[in-house]
Write a protein that binds this DNA or RNA. Structure first.
Lengths: 221, 221, 221, 221
DNA sequence: AATGAATGAGCGTTCATTCAT
DNA sequence: AATGAATGAACGCTCATTCAT
């Protein structure tokens, strides 16, 4: 347990130097996750069994349970993975935005980019008509939603964005982002720019029109 | 589903009342659907088995298969049920709308009303953090989406609504409707009016701002 | 559920007439019990698996669970079976006994007879040196013990038996019966009469000598 | 088990103290046995797995197999342990006995004392109604039985005890000892003395009455 | 049409054991 | 000698589905 001061290792102490064991462990975990990703995309969440996942791996069945204790847990890990992958990008572009239109535009763009690049993952969440879609709001995913909402609130406080219900606003952005992604993926070629422009303009105009917004409201027909 | 006037039954044919046999059939089917609804809400889609459903019924296991051939099929029937329940109302309010703000407002209001009245059903679709949500776009559900899109296109043609991408627009409305519903249900008391106003104003303002719209576009902050 | 007064059956109402279904059910249950008996005797309780039992049967694996829910439950049923088989005999001989020596002698004799006739069953309870013996005091078995103790108490009340601690006395009889059975079975030929005489004489003499025994009655003849 | 005087170790050989390595070995073995004892008492023999045992230890799973090759073997070791613990005491009191009543009384007393002091162990062998009791007559246990039988034969030869079937007699003593222990443990407070007096008197009187017993010696005082 | 026991594939999981470190 | 992850056979069990009644 204790760390000997002098290490009888041939590697630079204190840096990476994962033992062979740790290496295999990492590899195994990655193998399971990657197999799971494929299988989920192919068979859907409910159609997938733990055995399907390990079969895609060259590990023994029991090995699965050294890493995850159920299909749900792998699924969650996969979702967390995605969330952890987009969130830094989203946070960055929002931090860099100096005006609200940019804030929105870059948020949507990053999200649509991510969706376009990771279609296999979304094959799971968005499937053919009549088939079952599945969504899991893991803690990491929820955290991403909350970051968005917090950033929106901040922008409102700073007078950059009109002061509207931030909870509903974040929800709307998320709803639009997911649903528009879906349609975007169905078109050929995939037009991230178009989707971005649509979503941004819709939201930007809409927000301006919201009751709480001080600006001339409720335009149209 | 429809009741033929002349019945090929061996019982008194001269009454308009459904034969006892058909009556039982309808009852059984309804019993299965209602049991399924409860079980799905309680156990989630994946957690539910055909056995769980029939157990809530006083039918024998084999009887299930006279009505549905799998859990997926009952689930689909349930979804269709809901879709068939809201769609007439949605179509009606949209047909009655003489201006676009009313069109949008009444669409959202009807949907949020429906959600508020049918929370058990949405307990299935929207579950606690970390748990799995499930959604199935059955033909009837998709038809509902298409009706919305068609109505939007019609409104655009008639010059009532700005001419924007109707596919993305319908998608956005749907995304907003679902995601805002979710938040609406989490608040106490449930405020259908507030949700309706938010969604309507957001969309109405947004549409006016969309590039294709002929009106002064895209401004803000 | 209700019993129609006139039955459209071709069999004498009110008597046996088990339907074919009930017949198979009874057969299946019996088949499982009998297979279990053999397997337990061969592999010991812990060595036996549910699958071993069904394998000895020509039933499908799932069928087992229509009848029992675990190996423990079959085992218990088997034990109950035995207990229910000996107890009537034991009760009868004790009821018929007019003196205490007869009471004891016939109790032991019946038990040893039973053991001698049912060696396969005892193969489970009494196994080779070094192997594990298993005993399960199911409710039915315990009831048998209690009947013995009650009868002993009755005999004491009636002045037929000396008044000693009936709990310890019943325990002693049971201990002797089991342990002596074991030795009896190891001898060739099996001498039920010898075992009976030994146990009876030992107990009869012993009881007479017990401190509480006030009476001089019941001398060994 | 034995300590060779000359040790093939690379450590200071000139001390009588066990080498550190041997010390650890002994400790590990003891740790496993003690963990096993607890787990068996808690989970029952069948319910216990090797993993359960090592988990209670701070050893690695593989280490178990340096000491025992199966759960059965640990169980056997535990049983041997007990047997080796009582037998010297039993042998001693019997050797010291100058008359047969004392021989019996001290045998029972020692056994009941042992049981009373080691209830955890008997929790395994004797469990609640309906649950499974397990008993293993390991070689060491059997040796204890044989010692009893030999001592009985010796006493008969020496004219101290009546000449009766020594095999059945030993069996009876063992049966009584086990079964009466059981009842004794259920009473509050635990009355070793009472159990001893009961068993001794019963057996002593009984033996005197046995047909083979020619002698009038050895009456209960 | 309804029943409900039988079926058997196949699932999740555990576990004793091995063996590279 | 100790470690602990990997192994894979095999277990208990469930389940959708069938089919004789």
């Amino acid at each position: 347990m204790s760390e000997p001061v002098i290490q009888d290792t041939d590697e630079k102490p204190d840096t990476a130097a994962p033992s062979k064991r740790e290496q295999t462990k990492a590899n195994n975990k990655a193998a399971i996750l990657s197999a799971a990703q494929e299988v989920f995309a192919e068979l859907g969440y409910e159609g997938t069994t733990v055995r399907d996942i390990i079969r895609k791996t060259n590990l023994a069945s029991g090995t699965f349970y050294n890493y995850f204790k159920s299909k749900e847990e792998v699924f969650e890990a996969l979702m967390d993975d995605r969330a952890l992958k987009v969130r830094p990008k989203l946070n960055e572009v929002r931090k860099d935005a100096t005006d609200f239109p940019t804030f929105l535009r870059e948020t949507f763009r990053s999200f649509f980019d991510f969706v376009a690049e990771d279609q296999q993952h979304f094959a799971l969440v968005r499937r053919n008509t009549g088939a079952i879609r599945v969504r899991m709001d893991t803690p990491e995913v929820v955290a991403g939603f909350e970051e968005l909402q917090n950033d929106l609130e901040q922008a409102m406080k700073n007078g950059l964005a009109p002061k509207v219900d931030p909870d509903f606003l974040a929800a709307s952005m998320i709803g639009i982002a997911f649903e528009v992604s879906d349609r975007m993926l169905m078109r050929e070629p995939i037009d991230v720019e178009g989707a971005t422009e649509f979503a941004t303009a819709l939201l930007l105009g809409g927000i301006g029109a919201l009751p709480e917004g001080l600006m001339d409201s409720d335009r149209l027909e």
